[in-house]
Design a protein around this nucleic acid. Structure first.
Lengths: 225, 225
DNA sequence: TATGCCAATATTGTATACAATATATTGACG
DNA sequence: CGTCAATATATTGTATACAATATTGGCATA
């Protein structure tokens, strides 16, 4: 089941958005993206359409696609649902976590720690992926899909309204959550997760969305592989 | 913002699946569907791709699309999440429901009641839409989207594993839920909703998935408008 | 009759062409 | 100097063409 070229475009754009190489509001012209990835507009359209259904891209008829710019109301809804679903995941996992689950979480935490001052982009990505891993271990595929989607959309919101990233803050809290899960203490884990998510949401404070011109080709170059 | 023709195809296929005119496993060849709707394969592909991302259609590379056939494990996950999210919606609505909300629910209930022996397809659709309306009134767009998706996917599951529909059963329970919401009694409403959903899930019992040949053109004809 | 291989057919994967719509530019006029 | 209209350009909307892959049917062989 080799990933098709359409998947490559989809995944590349998705990463570029999540890692904030592409900022909310950036235009995404089909032919330009097609040139970057070496595919035709047909495939680009498909990728953009998928991204729209995940809420990462906004498409207006006859006016093209751009990286989604969630309103404050949408941002609120997204954070609310993220909290709801991640608490569900945390409780489920607390009720079923085995030693191998804990081991996977700790391995991930080690990666997070290792990347801390070294590679900022990687830090940001790993911090998000911790939450996705947790949802995966909770054992419900649908829950996993929704959490993954909401975590992605939160990157957008932080890019729009958040302070510049200080990725470090999360790691300690992640460790505490793992500890509670190891003790199978669902209430404690849920409480810690709730505080952690409130922290993240709290960083959603207005900063000026400085609009500088952007060279799409250069931005996408590292994602086109 | 006139709905484009791609949307027409998407919506038509979606309805055909949800109303069980198209059964799980039915093949969905692009050119045939294109002929039914009077559009090219390009637009059909887009629609199928969107339906896949909602879990209603399954696409395999070079082998085409078919109506999704959720496994029993997937069905379990879907029902679990549906319960989780609908309970959330019910509690939220109980905390905020105003007279106009109640009025809209009751208007819907009246439609459900009116269609009871008259039009089976319509009955099934309205029963599902009650849950979607409730989620809409809960006031979170993301929650609404997820509930709508899960309700759709449950139609698939009932088509696969469920007994033949007896739509009537739901209406009484819907009325009780509205009553609890009117009293702003969140606990009672959530409890009633939980029982109601357990009923629905309980109908997911094995029946033989009789595979008869199906005339795709005839099935789609009423949806192609 | 059963089985495996090869051609024939059908279906999807992708690019490109042309039409329709939106955006930008230019120039005239107040 | 600013505003509006007309045109030119760019971008999306859709269909079609051709290539690549899967499926089907027939034929030879055991």
């Amino acid at each position: 089941m080799a990933p098709t070229r359409a998947d490559t475009v989809y995944a590349g754009l998705r990463r570029a958005i999540i890692e904030q190489a592409l900022a909310p509001g950036d235009k995404l012209p089909e032919d330009q993206i097609g040139r970057s990835f070496g595919v035709s507009r047909t495939l680009v359209r498909g990728a953009l359409s998928r991204l729209q259904s995940e809420g990462l891209v906004h498409i207006r008829a006859n006016r093209g696609a751009e990286v989604a710019r969630p309103t404050l109301a949408e941002a609120t809804d997204i954070f609310e649902m993220r909290r709801c679903l991640e608490l569900e995941a945390t409780r489920r996992l607390a009720a079923r976590a085995g030693p191998d689950d804990i081991a996977r979480l700790e391995a991930h935490l080690a990666e997070e720690t290792a990347s801390l001052g070294v590679n900022d982009t990687r830090s940001i990505r790993l911090a998000g992926e911790f939450h996705i891993l947790l949802a995966e271990l909770a054992g419900n595929q649908v829950l996993l899909g929704y959490v993954a989607e909401l975590v992605s959309r939160c990157s957008l919101i932080l890019a729009l309204y958040g302070r510049p990233h200080s990725a470090e803050c999360g790691v300690r809290e992640h460790r505490d959550i793992i500890e509670a899960l190891r003790r199978r203490d669902g209430d404690a884990a849920a409480r810690l997760m709730q505080h952690h998510l409130d922290d993240v949401a709290g960083r959603a404070l207005l900063s000026d969305p400085a609009a500088r011109p952007r060279d799409l080709g250069a931005i996408l170059e590292p994602y086109a592989g």
